[in-house]
Amino acid sequence: PESADLRALSRQLCLSYHRHFPLTKSKAKAILSGKTHGNSPFVIHDMKSLTAGQYFINCRQLPVLERQRSVLPPEEPAEELELSVFRRIQFRSAEAVQEVTEFTKSIPGFTELDMNDQVILLKYGVIEVMTTMLAPLMNKDGTLFAYGQIFMTREFLKSLRKPFCEMMEPKFEFAAKFNLLELDDSDMALFFAVIILSGDRPGLVNVKPIEDLQETVLQALELQLKTIHPDCPQLFAKLLQKMTDLRQLVANHVRHIHLLKKQELQMCLHPLLQEIMRDLY
């Protein structure tokens, strides 16, 4: 494709990214660096602040669409702290799956692919995209949550009992390295599309059109990185290497969840997440 076509594709994916993902990297950066003019997130650092934070999630003024989306699942009285945190994270994750799905459908050519292949690409790609999306929300001290209204400290997450305390640490470690690449939102949009359009996912029926689509997005990504980040000629190669790390990270995460399901009898896995993780790794 001509570079004008590639730039048009980048613009289209960037617009879709901004339309479907409420907490972009630039917004997260502003919140994390305290540049939101007094509208700083509520910090959850212990059980008491977790209970108070719950109130903030329900009461903070949000645009109508976001307010509808952030309604929490019904409270279960006397629920164990760890299970309660896990349930909240799951609920937000299920919402994020919907956002990623809408973004995925906007990738030119995606909805013309075989329906079976669309399901497989989404099933395998969605957690990788969500993990990447988490990186800009994190710094060394914690992570934003609930559309940037909450900041949950890393120490609090580490203070949860085993095995819950082990779940977020690998994501913080990945985020620290990923954030060094200093991508912007438009780079992220293209990278997400590249992840989704991976032609080597197990069970795909018709690989060729997927690889063709991915090739075009890769060209658009390479062109964009060269244009926006001219001082970092290795950025494209470095970013593609992250895809290997992501697969390993997600595979470990899914194994962790399967183990949790066996060990934690009171833990319920969200049906949508259950569907995605079943027979995944």
Binding site: F91, A94, E95, V97, Q98, T101, T104, K105, T111, M115, N116, Q118, V119, I120, L122, K123, G203, H270, P271, L272, E275, I276, R278, D279
Partner: peptide, 21 residues
Amino acid sequence: LKEKHKILHRLLQNSTSPVEL
């Protein structure tokens, strides 16, 4: 595959209506 991934399938097919979570 469709049977095992009913929600994903629905999310992919319905353009605007939110899935009951």
